[in-house]
């Protein structure tokens, strides 16, 4: 039995569909990241798993329990880090961890936990006077104090300084080796690349890609280059025998394996027109490129998305509405 099961989950806020048929599983000892732009439905998905919201359609199970109807039973076995806040502003780390420890039958040692998240030097500083990263690490400690079997970490590295990120990374690695299932959300690609075993890219409430990082990037090979905007890409495509698209003004993608002959041909074509080459990159797609392509978070609308460009305009509006919630 997977630790977390999400099956065609739909969550609505009034007429707004925040999560639109998301499905995925996660096992014990696995770190799964939900990656997507703001308003993609990541937090809503996680909050449904935590039992804060009810599924409008589809089903979610955490450790075999329904998070909504078995909420009380489940709270003893999950750890939760909210996107922000959640802690008494006047309470210091030491008192907060000790207080939360009393909620659980067999808690972790509070002092050990404070050392683990590296808060010892500020253990007696009230929450409201901690830095953003320290606040996030205290929230992380509180998520772990009950020895959870599943940990939900909503944006665990948002606003966290580099030292804090290392602490978070160590903690997540420790959870993985203890067999804890970790579900985290992020909109930062670098962090996801470091933390997660598997990535689920979500946009507009739907899963647009999922898999281990290598799988998501796929085997597709490509060539990217930068030159002046507005090249005659039709002519260049014919010359190279491969589709060329101008993804953003002055940034071009050649969707074909970048064999040396192709690179040479491109160079010759540019040389004939006396056009300088700004940048040249060949090989497998970067996760960032996959993400930007799938979620359309780039500045300009790529030509390759022209087919769904018509539907993306009103959805943008939705996304703003969601952010206001």
């Amino acid at each position: 039995m997977p630790a977390v099961e999400v099956d065609h989950l739909v969550v609505r806020y009034g007429s707004l569909v925040a999560v639109d048929g998301v499905s995925f599983d996660a096992d014990a000892g696995e770190v799964v990241a939900l990656l997507g732009p703001n308003g993609a439905g990541k937090t809503t998905t996680v909050e449904t798993l935590e039992g804060f919201r009810r599924a409008d359609a589809g089903a979610v199970r955490v450790l075999g329990l329904d998070p909504w109807s078995d909420h009380t039973k489940l709270t003893a076995r999950i750890g939760v880090l909210l996107q922000r806040g959640g802690i008494y502003p006047v309470m210091n780390a030491e008192r907060a961890v000790r207080l939360f420890a009393t909620y659980y039958e067999d808690p972790r040692d509070p002092d050990e936990l404070i050392d683990l998240v590296r808060l010892r030097p500020v253990a007696r500083t009230p929450y409201k006077r901690l830095s953003g990263g320290e606040q996030q690490r205290l929230a992380l400690a509180l998520a772990l104090v009950g020895k959870p079997r599943v940990a939900f970490l909503d944006e665990p590295t948002a606003g966290v300084d580099p030292a804090g990120r290392i602490a978070v990374r160590d903690v997540v690695a420790g959870l993985r080796s203890d067999g804890v299932c970790v579900i985290l959300t992020s909109h930062e690609l670098d962090e996801v690349q470091r933390l997660a075993d598997r990535v689920i890219i979500v946009d507009h409430g739907r899963v647009v890609a999922a898999g281990r990082q290598g799988e998501i990037q796929g085997d597709s090979q490509e060539l990217r280059f930068a030159a002046e905007p507005g090249l005659a890409i039709g002519e260049l495509s014919a010359r190279l025998g491969a589709a060329v698209t101008e993804e953003q003004p002055g940034e071009y993608l050649v969707s074909t394996p970048p064999v040396p002959a192709l690179v040479a041909e491109l160079a010759v074509w540019l040389a004939e027109r006396d056009l300088p080459l700004g940048d040249l990159r060949a090989g497998r797609q970067r996760l960032e490129d996959v993400f930007l392509r799938l979620t359309g978070s780039g500045v300009a609308e790529p030509t390759s998305r022209a087919c769904d460009g018509a539907s993306s305009a009103p959805r943008r509006g939705n996304r703003k509405g969601r952010a206001r919630r």
Partner: peptide, 18 residues
């Protein structure tokens, strides 16, 4: 009211405190 606005009540709702 301030505990509610700081998300404290929400966070406590995810613990076995009840």
């Amino acid at each position: 009211a301030f505990e509610r606005s700081y998300g404290v009540l929400k966070r406590l709702g995810a613990t076995p405190l009840g």
